[in-house]
Design a binder for these strands. Sequence first.
DNA 1: GCTTAAACGAGACGGTACGTCGTGTCTTGCA
DNA 2: TGCAAGACACGACGTACCGTCTCGTTTAAGC
Lengths: 204, 204, 204, 204
Amino acid sequence: MMCGMAPDPNRRRESSRRAILTAAFDLLQEVGYAKLTIEGIAARAGVGKQTIYRWWPSKGIVIFDAFLMLNEAPEGGPPLLPDTGDLHADLTAVLRATVVELNDPRYDQPLRALSTEITHDPELAAAYVERLDKPMRQAKRQRLRSAQQAGQLAEDLDLDMAVDIIWAPVLNRWLQRSGPLTTEYADSIVAIALDGLRPRRPGD
Amino acid sequence: MMCGMAPDPNRRRESSRRAILTAAFDLLQEVGYAKLTIEGIAARAGVGKQTIYRWWPSKGIVIFDAFLMLNEAPEGGPPLLPDTGDLHADLTAVLRATVVELNDPRYDQPLRALSTEITHDPELAAAYVERLDKPMRQAKRQRLRSAQQAGQLAEDLDLDMAVDIIWAPVLNRWLQRSGPLTTEYADSIVAIALDGLRPRRPGD
Amino acid sequence: MMCGMAPDPNRRRESSRRAILTAAFDLLQEVGYAKLTIEGIAARAGVGKQTIYRWWPSKGIVIFDAFLMLNEAPEGGPPLLPDTGDLHADLTAVLRATVVELNDPRYDQPLRALSTEITHDPELAAAYVERLDKPMRQAKRQRLRSAQQAGQLAEDLDLDMAVDIIWAPVLNRWLQRSGPLTTEYADSIVAIALDGLRPRRPGD
Amino acid sequence: MMCGMAPDPNRRRESSRRAILTAAFDLLQEVGYAKLTIEGIAARAGVGKQTIYRWWPSKGIVIFDAFLMLNEAPEGGPPLLPDTGDLHADLTAVLRATVVELNDPRYDQPLRALSTEITHDPELAAAYVERLDKPMRQAKRQRLRSAQQAGQLAEDLDLDMAVDIIWAPVLNRWLQRSGPLTTEYADSIVAIALDGLRPRRPGD
DNA sequence: GCTTAAACGAGACGGTACGTCGTGTCTTGCA
DNA sequence: TGCAAGACACGACGTACCGTCTCGTTTAAGC
């Protein structure tokens, strides 16, 4: 017994949904976030504007859903980080991959757009954390836990913080362009995060 | 020889400049980034739109300048971090202050707006790094260098990276709302950053 | 041989037809011609839009049919004008009735809507002339012919023109609101039409 | 001290005004009333939609103003009807001219549009009566008064009604297409109006 | 009475136009 | 001449309807 009756999802046309999300993502690449318009998405998708407004409450959620579609499509089970036993090497490889992805021009504009939307919309941020961040974070924590059990990480270490300390600097440098985002930067971050800022005793 | 003539900065009316920047900052708090308009700023500042377009090339730079005005006003010389000799305590205090500022509702919307503009405009990002980030980073590096000279930090440590590792997690959590941004979080980040993720030998 | 198959009139649901026409007429009164929409009619009639599109080619014809329904319903045979032998009195009475009907707020909006549709759609105009105008005109002509045979009207008078000369001024004043539409106006029109604009010899 | 501050007519751009009214009139001819849109007018006039909305409260008034522009432009003083002394001939000539104008395809659609707007908007109707109908009616009355003074019309004749009786049938037949609108029709109307429906004594 | 094909209600869809808002430019008149 | 005021061409907004198109669900004719 609600008013403002929500549309019936059964009647939703899947082809339109995909066309809209694809168009949104493609346009983000091509024209950038500032020039992304609902009208543009609708035109590119060959869809009426109302079809977008009917199913998505805001442009930000369209963008978010576009990423969801991308990430859910090719998945074969939950993501996993490599575990060769060499924590330093594994983390370096993964963080380098992150750097490469952030430097990929195909993802640059869309990712910045997603970041902006998350920054300004708490609900979207929650959805992001839940749907996109959580699975990756799980995998990262998983790798760290494995290292912890092998005695390679401090016993009382909060793994979520460890994840933050490793990945946040890279994301931040990318967002703010506070310096070149290179694989060397990734390497150094991993090294410093593992060993800490303080001098280590010889023999470690 | 009078095409595209740049306006004469000498004739610029200072009162209008301040009114515009103040209005921009206030409106950011009140209506948020998405609803911040040039017309709104002009109206609030009691100024013609052209006066904004004459002196600022984009809305982002108005926002940026608004922050510049704030940060340059009360300054008595370059900023400094406390140096009690106890690095852990000093860093904790400063990072806690950062957390408090980020949680201050007066700065929340404006800071997010600034962040968004930087994310999407490389030129603005460069200006940000140069004019706002650099001075603070200088102060942070300064404190770390002092510690390094006292043997409290690794000799070969890249201090810029150290700054990133300490401050990026806090900024990131704030931007993405990936978790509660508390002083405890700040404390833990400092602790982990200093000691690293690896287990320390007893006696450290 | 099955393209564009016309719907089978036998299966037509009479209740829907009446509901649609009633809804159309009522909405005309309530919201006026400009805001009359097919969706509105369908909603008010508790009917799907397609049911309207299936049976009526245009909104104008729905309106027209609504009038047809009204006029055909209470009919017991063809309409007749009173014939007391006193032509002046009879015409005055009938034209006064016309004025009263045009001034009735229940019919004002619907009639204006009908008029507009007729004005812009020649086919509809033909239907109007045939189905609504003709029967009334017949009755009017009948009364005039009776007077003509009694020697009260010129022998060679074109009765259709006589009808026009008597009724058109009233309709026109109503449509254009070029002046108050009163029974006195009707009276004067009849008087002038009968006697003509020229001065009459005494003794007429 | 008003809110909803009306725009300042001094700042109005005359060229835009003319372009809009011309475009509106031309489009009425070309696409007809039903397909006349504000967007279409703006596009054809090379003007922003807002410029139309700023100065005209409704589409009907744009149409009305388009006619005003047409009628005020070529005027050299108030309009006059021919006065040869032969009332019958003069009226016939003028009413024939009316018929010709109504049959002119350049004016057909625009006039029907104007008629529709007047029918549905009382305010517009008042403006029409005042600005467009009144001057013509004045000229018509003038000619009739001249005839009246010459003893060719009844002394106590209400000249406004006389005008109605002569012109309304033609307008009505044109609007409703209730029959062919020919010069013969005009002739007959004049003849019948002058002599009345009743038989005249021989010698008149 | 059971089947089956239609008309039906509901409403999603690709579109068009609405009337509003903001952009960045241009013009006018005041100081 | 710098400025406030604001008109302007332009483009996007979010909404309302258009007319078409599925969907299941009646419903009435024909087997």
